[in-house]
Design a protein around this nucleic acid. Structure first.
Lengths: 220, 220
DNA sequence: GATTGTGAAAGCGTTCACAGCC
DNA sequence: GGCTGTGAACGCTTTCACAATC
């Protein structure tokens, strides 16, 4: 259920705004989705709503957190201390949301020893030690596309079972390892596609209008 | 067609590796998807394959680029010069993939004037001028969740018609504006969910095995 | 009266399977 | 013989609609 994190965020916002109870209709409005979908998604957790009333915001947040395994923090290890790795580690967003950076590694000995976001870069050979000593389950690949598969192999060998891949390449992992891919260029290319279509539509509209105006005898 | 960018990436890798022709089967293998899906997706562009042979890599790359509107660069403007904005602008990935940063703006006057990734931060009031003078169509929201809607409104008012939203909140935009959302915390929470399930499965297996061993009279 | 929880219907994307073509 | 292009079958997700409940 990939939508539970979104509901959690919305509920958290509402909770901060002093709202203690919410209906599926309101939650759907906030999330820009269908109310029935919200109810189906939430009913999957159990029957935590009250008919005629709605859902208790705080209780529902707790149930979603429990389902998502957010009752404790999960340390992550970042592979790749280049621009992207530095950006991800330096930007404090991971830690704020319950996923502190427990380690950063790189293949380049020159990068080892530098401090990024308060964490010292270590060599990729130390990955297994870091993962096992800190009980890390989640790895983040911030390496170039060509090195992504090596990074994935190293993470799996070290004992990581979930990978967030920022490299622009598909990685293969053994069964039982979860992988999610985030490719910023892909997101931008999809937007570019929409822009392209809009530009084409405008051009077509113009081509249609010019002969029409000429037929009507308009000049300027 | 959100998979075209992925095919383009795979084709590009193959082209660099000296491969001039590829079958749907091979492409499917590389992308980890079904071959029929690849053919359906590509047939949407037109009939650019040759039966009995496959697809010409270079020609297909060009067709996908044309469809995605990647025949020219698209400058983007980043709203928010905090940690995330700095990270996105400083990490050169945008420019490398055909989306150079044409401007960065922030509401905070103290940030205005600083240089990030070679670009000077300007005030958000200058957004319309930047967008119109540089003919920018794509905006990137790198502001905190609470400021995301304001950022979106400012982008739309300035004339941007595509938005990539990194803020952890849902934004509403007029019809005709494309929005894509990337939430790193959501990605990590989905991985956490899988970890949680694996942990639960291990616990259940242990509970099952203990009484079983006891029944068999095993001790150590 | 209001709202949840959920079978049933509708819609959509994926996969199969094979005709058509090189 | 090999591979594409595509109608048809399938399965999954979304939406509807309403009985059950407060």
């Amino acid at each position: 259920m990939a939508r539970l994190p979104v509901y959690l965020q919305l509920l958290s916002d509402q909770f901060d705004a002093g709202c203690s109870n919410i209906s599926s209709e309101e939650l759907a409005e906030l999330g820009g989705v269908n109310a029935a979908k919200v109810r189906k998604d939430l009913s999957y957790l159990g029957s935590y709503g009250t008919r005629g009333v709605g859902y208790d915001v705080e209780f529902l947040m707790f149930q979603i957190k429990r389902e998502l395994g957010l009752t404790h923090e999960w340390e992550v290890v970042i592979v790749g201390a280049g621009h992207l790795g530095q950006a991800l580690a330096g930007y404090g967003g991971f830690g704020e949301r319950g996923f502190p950076v427990g380690g950063i590694v790189d293949v380049d000995p020159d990068k080892v020893g530098t401090i990024i976001g308060g964490v010292r870069v270590q060599h990729v050979d130390d990955l297994a030690h870091i993962v096992q000593s800190r009980d890390i389950a989640i790895g983040v690949i911030a390496a170039p596309g060509a090195a992504a598969q090596d990074a994935a192999d190293a993470l799996v060998a070290a004992g990581v079972t979930s990978i967030l891949n920022f490299a622009p390449s598909v990685i293969s992992t053994p069964h039982g390892v979860s992988v999610r891919k985030v490719d910023l260029a892909v997101e931008l290319q999809i937007l570019s596609y929409h822009e392209q279509r809009r530009a084409n539509a405008r051009r077509a509209a113009k081509l249609r209008s010019v002969p029409a105006r000429q037929a009507r005898g308009a000049s300027a």
